[in-house]
Amino acid sequence: MSTLTVNGVTHTLDIDPSTPLLYALRNQLELNGAKFGCGLGQCGACTVLLDDQPVFGCLTPVAACEGRRVRTIESLGDAAHPGPLQASFIKHQAAQCGYCIAGMVMRAQALLEQNPQPSTAQIRAHMEPNLCRCGTHMRILAAIGEVAAARRVAPLERKAPGAKP
């Protein structure tokens, strides 16, 4: 038996502890956002957050997740109410086939939680492990950059009316 806390909900699964997290998420918990891409940790389609750090779900065994927090794309929003990153990816039409997008969004989410105002160079470096076969990297970077830029502006908007800069 393995106990996983996924998106804030604790689940007890009758599963081999060496099973990749991706399989537990998709097959046991029916959370299908993370995708199986290469199975080798080289594409990032399976990226989820483990204690707020991006990991490849295809390589991470369930045993490594015991007592830790797992977050998937499903934790950020849904089609009716997308989260900020999801909305920006939609706006920028970052998804072509859509296969890589959940992993891209989760890796970007980790970056923005650790560094709310990353530079373009920091975004590029952080996103490097995730691949998009359709070649929408520029749209993906634009979507992430827009959310980061909005976070740079937001603190200024919170000042009291009439307050000096």
Rank of each mutant, 00 (worst) to 15 (best):
R124H: 06
E74I: 03
E30T: 07
G98M: 00
P54H: 06
M1S: 12
G33W: 05
L112A: 08
A160N: 11
V70F: 07
G37T: 10
T136H: 13
S18P: 00
M127S: 11
H92N: 13
Q114T: 14
T60H: 11
A24S: 08
P84F: 07
N27P: 03
N32K: 08
V6T: 03
P17E: 09
V62T: 13
I90R: 07
M106F: 13
E113G: 10
V9S: 04
K91A: 14
P54Y: 05
V147C: 06
T19V: 03
P61C: 08
A160Q: 12
L131K: 08
T120N: 10
Y23F: 11
L76K: 07
A102T: 09
V48H: 00
F36A: 10
E157L: 15
L21C: 03
C43V: 04
R26A: 05
H11G: 11
A95S: 15
T72H: 09
M1L: 04
A125F: 03
I123Y: 08
D14Y: 09
F36W: 09
L29A: 01
L25Y: 02
T72L: 12
A24F: 03
E157P: 05
K91W: 09
P165H: 07
K91S: 08
I15H: 01
A24M: 05
P161L: 08
